[in-house]
Design a protein around this nucleic acid. Sequence first.
DNA 1: TGGAATCTTGCTCATCTGAGCACTCGGGCG
DNA 2: CGCCCGAGTGCTCAGATGAGCAAGATTCCA
Lengths: 321, 321
Amino acid sequence: MERTRVIDTDELLSIRAAELYYEENKTQDEIGTLLRLTRWKVGRLLAQAKASGFIRIEIVHPRARRLSVERRLREATGLTDAIVVSSAGVAGDEELQSRTAQAAADYLTGLRPVPRTLGISWGRTLHEVALHLKQGWAHGVNVVQINGGVSLNRRAGTAAATAVNIAHKAAGAATLLPSPAILERFETKQAIESDRAVAAVLNLATAASAYLFSAGQADENSALVDSGYLTVEQVAELVRKGAVGDIVGRYIDSNGNIVDPELDGRTVGIQLEQLRQAKTAIAVIAGGSKHAIARAIVGSGLCTVLVTDEDTALAILGDEA
Amino acid sequence: MERTRVIDTDELLSIRAAELYYEENKTQDEIGTLLRLTRWKVGRLLAQAKASGFIRIEIVHPRARRLSVERRLREATGLTDAIVVSSAGVAGDEELQSRTAQAAADYLTGLRPVPRTLGISWGRTLHEVALHLKQGWAHGVNVVQINGGVSLNRRAGTAAATAVNIAHKAAGAATLLPSPAILERFETKQAIESDRAVAAVLNLATAASAYLFSAGQADENSALVDSGYLTVEQVAELVRKGAVGDIVGRYIDSNGNIVDPELDGRTVGIQLEQLRQAKTAIAVIAGGSKHAIARAIVGSGLCTVLVTDEDTALAILGDEA
DNA sequence: TGGAATCTTGCTCATCTGAGCACTCGGGCG
DNA sequence: CGCCCGAGTGCTCAGATGAGCAAGATTCCA
């Protein structure tokens, strides 16, 4: 850090002017009189202060978005859309996730054309999105699960509840995928996928007009560990192989490639290619621990729309302070 | 914290409008078109957003001041003047103290009428103020020390150097107080004060046209402990008696009263009454550990001007977050 | 030193914005 | 049932502001 940078006279003046303008809300004219300057000079000083980044304007509100970051994200990544919620004045990740989920609900509500069928994953984040959706957010949107999710040891049904909740609030029907997320043997997975009930759902999922999903980080707090599908050791092993997180139950590395094909072969749900080719694939990702997976998803074209928080967005753009 | 507060439609709209206005700098007209509102409605929404405190404008610069806080401080305390430097984007106390010292130097430079004789204390803060003063900051200001300060075990002379430095840069003379800050016996203190050389300096100090001083917190990091005048235990005892810090070597409680008259009787320097009656008494106080002493000084009228940092100022005003 | 190139300054003018005012709409009350 | 009151809306108008321009100041070489 450059402690002994010379501060030129105009810079100081521009700060004095800014104080009077923004804190005391005097007019440029009045400031001119006070500082013995013409009002044009004052205007220029103010412009200079802004340009130098000395004036920071923040919108402090849970629903505030960062439009400039959204624009940069769209331009840098080619995303169709990017929604970035402000992290100004946020305490912890929990608040961040709540804000992001709210924004996702807003986005979904405003999405045009309204999807006839919406494919969704499950998890903490999606659950919260469902909560934030308003009754009647759409009319006749059917919801289909895109990856297996009957929880093994948690109170069952959160995954199902999310889908039902979203569908119910849109006066539509929910189609559940009656299968575990990961099976122990490849053969079992093949068998269950060829079962008529399951196959029908997967077909529906493949044909969905839009997808909404979140992602999990690759560490001991992963939802898949929590649900009992994987052990902490298994996740650690995946990380050793380069995993940064999972998306619809499939672990990927920072390039968006499947980390462990054998494990992936035992995972029930749509293929990542489905998401890559989808017209509308909305990823909802928030929190400091998900920067890496968010980056991987956006970087490898796994979503067309990203809903996230400011910090994650900046991490993706690569300009963290 | 109220998590489930209802956010009315206008509030949300005002946030959207603010995003477009402040982040995308669109005109109110354009925003009106985008949001399907008249431009007057947009203006009102923006005004509402400001009034609700959703728009936060900060001036991020080491020399930035907080004029609104200064005004509140003046009004609440009856200070003649208050200088409050912004703590926006500051790492630690060190930076805060540097900024404050700089501001004090600026204030001193602009002080009118220019004091003929300036009485100063000594310490880290005053030393830094001296450094920040520019050569020729005034013409012919004489400096006199107002409290004893020959350091016992530090490299001697910082106290003297401060005085000489300030005087030199103002083309004036420095008068040093050749005495320890605190003596071991009352009789010795009386003797030294009646010595012609010392008495003359004290007379000069009493007649100074302005005073500039800092204050120390009452804990093991106090400058008086550092200099060897007091032990950690003695300070702890003073704290037990209510001391919040020292000013010109004298420990006071939160009401501005001398905590230990016996100790005070052995302390060489002008009396606090001198400061209370002075036309111009500038206190320079910065840092989180000095909130209490700053409050005591301002509250008991020991200064007419306070130069401090934003956090300390807010602590004095009693509206810390 | 001269003169060209650049920066700075003061200004005009068009635009943006806030204050104030008249009007409308909706609900409560006689 | 009609009237009144207050909130909210659209408008006028004047003050505030930014863009652009020409004249003056400054710098930098030759």
